[in-house]
Amino acid sequence: MVATQRKTTQKKRFNDVVKAESRNLDFYYADGTQALKNVNLDVYENKITALIGPSGCGKSTFLRSFNRMHDLYTGNRYDGQIVLHPDNTNILDKKVDPIEVRMRISMVFQKPNPFPKSIYENVAYGLRVRGEANTHVLDEKVEEALKGASLWEEVKDRLHDLAFNLSGGQQQRLCIARALATEPEIMLFDEPTSALDPIATVNIEELMSELKKKLSILIVTHNMQQAARISDYCAYMYLGELVEHDLTDKIFTNPSKKETEDYITGKFG
């Protein structure tokens, strides 16, 4: 009900369905520095939204707000909302359990960070945390997730090997499988290829294009070519503020703001 109501009151900017939106989002670190200033940004369903901008512009801070990673460290403070659709929930609300949020919105980190456990256990962990103990279900879902992360063929014969024995690119795909196994609605990527070689990077990029058929993706990247290659929407941030948010094609060919153009053409940053 509420969701449909909302659609009528809001002018639609693009023809895609809004999956999540930040509304007037401010963020303060424990030491008092404000890392995000009044950020309003929509994340669209089955699309890849890329966040670009110079280091320290707040793009990672923004990404980590989506699964309440900042709650792990005391003293951090959010103002404003991040609303998740279709149920219209403000996931930053104090009454919302961050753990539930993380179960709906999963994350892949900058450096591959598999647990020092077997490949199988890495993927199954999210399911186990949810209380899934049935071996058949686990087997099935692990296989499905590894297939989804196009890793299955490479590891199906050594599921019980230590995850550390995989190559960097494989480890990152394993982390994607781990995030995928719990069937999240949104997947967050924090510079997922910055620690990988070019071939592994291409693999991950192709994988992301495949993944967006099932879910929505928000990615932080340092690499502008990458943003141009894979994203549907692109947002340029600077000093904690959202400067411009538009279709990727538009941003890279005809940005409406001078700052964006300077950054993209390499005059700045």
């Binding site: 990673m69 792990l72 980190f109 960070n113 781990r178």
Partner: peptide, 8 residues
């Protein structure tokens, strides 16, 4: 963080 991120 990886463990927290999957909802532990």
């Amino acid at each position: 963080e990886a463990a927290f991120a999957v909802g532990a």
